[in-house]
Every structure is written in C-alpha cells, then in structure tokens.
C-alpha cells in the first residue's frame, strides 16, 4: 500500500493506493490524514478509474501538417522531433533587445499548464523554459 494525495482539487486529501502484482487495484482515503480523515469526494473515489481506466492513452501520437488523422510514433523519436522544433522556433523568434533594452528571449514558444503537476515538475519546466529564454509560460492559476 502506498501513501498518495488526491490529484483533483486543492483540499489535498490523503489517499492509500493498494497495489497487487504490479497493478493498482484500489484507491481509498487515508484515515491518518489530518485534513481529510480518510474521507474522499466522488472524484477522489473515482481515482482508480482515472488512473487505470481504459480511456487512458498509452502511446505517443503525431499529426503531420495537413494530415487528417493521427499516426503512432515511438517516444524517443517524438522527443527528438520536439527538441528540434524547440530549437528551430527559438532561433527563429530570438530577440536580443526590444526598444534598446536587453531582453535575451524568444517569443516563439509558449507553455500552458502546471496546476495539476508536482512542484518538482513545475520547477524543471520553469528552469528549462527560462534557460531557453521562453517567457510566455502560464498555468491554471490564471484561468
């Protein structure tokens, strides 16, 4: 059994995740949690279906320009293609300065999302984007 936290709203209910031969078989409230005392809401109780339901996609999909449908591609190729595009667009829209003021950034890349992610993930994203010079970084805190 593994201790976890519900991924839905910000109350932060404790969850106990039960695992049996490498598969998550049940998720329920963590009675030790001082915030939730073992209780969950309907969404929290549906965490098992969220994480193991068959609506979860497990392969990387790619849509070529003008294509009418997806094609499955493997993860590493996709990573490489994205890296290429990031560098290309970064260079294409690079600005050293604006109106005589040094900016050292690219306006070509933007990112949206972060409130459903871990702090560590937000940290790496902000660190990498800032190093890339991308500043149009946003998340649900503003939606």
């Amino acid at each position: 059994m593994v201790k976890s936290v519900c991924p839905y709203c910000a109350v932060g209910c404790g969850q106990n995740v039960f695992v049996k031969d490498e598969r998550v078989v049940h998720i329920e409230g963590d009675p030790d949690s001082p915030v939730s005392r073992g209780r969950l809401c309907p969404k929290g109780s549906a965490s098992l279906q969220l994480t193991t339901g068959e609506t979860r996609r497990l392969e990387v999909l790619y849509r070529a320009p003008y294509a009418s449908d997806w094609e499955v591609i493997d993860l590493d190729t996709a990573m490489d293609m994205v890296a290429e595009r990031v560098l290309r667009t970064r260079r294409e829209f690079w600005q050293w300065d604006v109106e005589g003021k040094r900016v050292r950034r690219t306006m070509g890349i933007a990112s949206l999302g972060g409130a459903t992610l871990d702090n560590e993930e937000n940290y790496l994203m902000k660190k990498l984007y800032t190093a890339l010079g991308a500043i149009q970084i946003e998340n649900q805190a503003r939606i």
Partner: peptide
Amino acid sequence: GCKACEVACKEW
C-alpha cells in the same frame, strides 16, 4: 449530496 458514496461503492 456529493455522491462520494455512489462512486466509492461502485469502485470497491
């Protein structure tokens, strides 16, 4: 009326 009971029952 949050229906946590309906979902928790179904999930278990």
